[in-house]
Structures are given as C-alpha cells and as structure tokens.
Measured scan of single mutants.
Amino acid sequence: NNDALSPAIRRLLAEHNLDASAIKGTGVGGRLTREDVEKHLAKA
C-alpha cells in the first residue's frame, strides 16, 4: 500500500525502479524503512 510510504521512501523506490511489495518492511506496522530498501539493494 503506497499510502503508508514516506515521500523519501517513495523517491528511493522510484530512483531504483523497485516495487514496494517486493520488500519486507521492518518498521512500525510493517512499514518500509530506508534500511529495508538499502538492504534489498545490497542483495540485488
């Protein structure tokens, strides 16, 4: 659900052409954090 993404996370996802649903969020309520996105990028 993109409504739960902060603007910074949306921008980071867009810059790397990532789909938020492909990344498991570890923030409050399962929200994506910058660390989640960076860890996903490091794996790729």
Rank of each mutant, 00 (worst) to 15 (best):
11 R>V: 06
25 G>V: 04
31 R>S: 14
33 T>I: 06
11 R>I: 10
31 R>Y: 07
37 V>K: 00
20 A>H: 07
29 G>E: 10
23 I>M: 06
30 G>K: 04
44 A>W: 09
21 S>V: 07
9 I>M: 12
23 I>D: 01
28 V>F: 06
2 N>L: 12
29 G>N: 14
35 E>Q: 12
33 T>R: 06
38 E>F: 13
36 D>N: 03
19 D>E: 12
20 A>P: 14
6 S>V: 05
38 E>T: 09
22 A>W: 08
42 A>F: 04
23 I>N: 01
36 D>Y: 01
26 T>R: 03
39 K>W: 06
4 A>G: 14
15 E>V: 06
14 A>T: 14
35 E>W: 07
6 S>G: 08
20 A>G: 08
27 G>D: 05
28 V>C: 00
36 D>L: 01
27 G>L: 03
28 V>W: 04
33 T>G: 02
1 N>G: 14
27 G>P: 01
35 E>G: 10
13 L>E: 02
11 R>W: 05
19 D>M: 09
14 A>V: 09
19 D>P: 07
40 H>C: 05
22 A>K: 13
31 R>Q: 14
29 G>A: 09
4 A>S: 14
2 N>T: 13
34 R>C: 07
7 P>H: 08
27 G>A: 05
29 G>K: 08
29 G>S: 08
37 V>F: 04
14 A>K: 10
11 R>P: 01
11 R>F: 05
7 P>T: 08
20 A>Y: 07
25 G>M: 03
28 V>S: 11
24 K>M: 11
16 H>L: 08
21 S>E: 10
12 L>T: 09
9 I>R: 02
7 P>K: 12
38 E>S: 08
8 A>T: 12
38 E>D: 09
18 L>F: 04
24 K>V: 14
29 G>L: 08
27 G>M: 02
22 A>V: 14
21 S>F: 05
7 P>D: 15
4 A>V: 13
37 V>N: 00
21 S>M: 08
38 E>M: 14
10 R>W: 01
34 R>Q: 15
14 A>E: 15
6 S>Q: 07
31 R>H: 10
31 R>F: 07
23 I>H: 01
3 D>V: 06
21 S>L: 08
32 L>M: 08
1 N>T: 14
2 N>F: 04
30 G>R: 04
24 K>H: 10
42 A>E: 14
14 A>S: 14
20 A>V: 13
38 E>N: 09
12 L>Q: 14
12 L>Y: 04
27 G>C: 01
13 L>R: 00
4 A>R: 12
42 A>Q: 12
35 E>P: 06
23 I>Y: 00
29 G>Q: 09
4 A>H: 15
33 T>L: 09
19 D>Y: 02
36 D>Q: 01
5 L>P: 06
31 R>A: 14
14 A>R: 08
5 L>Q: 07
5 L>A: 06
26 T>P: 02
11 R>S: 14
11 R>A: 13
33 T>A: 03
43 K>D: 12
14 A>W: 08
5 L>R: 04
17 N>R: 06
34 R>L: 15
27 G>Q: 03
38 E>Y: 11
9 I>Y: 06
8 A>G: 11
37 V>Q: 00
13 L>M: 05
17 N>S: 11
16 H>V: 03
38 E>A: 09
10 R>H: 05
3 D>A: 08
29 G>V: 04
29 G>H: 09
1 N>Q: 13
32 L>P: 06
18 L>W: 02
26 T>F: 01
31 R>L: 12
15 E>W: 05
35 E>F: 08
36 D>E: 02
36 D>V: 02
30 G>E: 05
19 D>R: 07
18 L>A: 04
32 L>W: 04
41 L>R: 01
9 I>T: 08
28 V>I: 13
33 T>K: 05
9 I>F: 06
31 R>G: 09
26 T>A: 04
9 I>D: 09
18 L>P: 00
42 A>T: 11
7 P>S: 09
16 H>Q: 04
13 L>Y: 00
21 S>W: 04
26 T>S: 12
15 E>N: 06
3 D>I: 07
43 K>I: 12
27 G>N: 03
16 H>E: 05
20 A>I: 14
28 V>A: 12
38 E>V: 13
17 N>C: 06
17 N>K: 09
25 G>S: 06
35 E>S: 12
5 L>Y: 03
35 E>L: 10
43 K>E: 12
42 A>N: 13
20 A>E: 11
24 K>G: 06
42 A>Y: 05
41 L>P: 01
21 S>H: 07
21 S>D: 10
34 R>T: 13
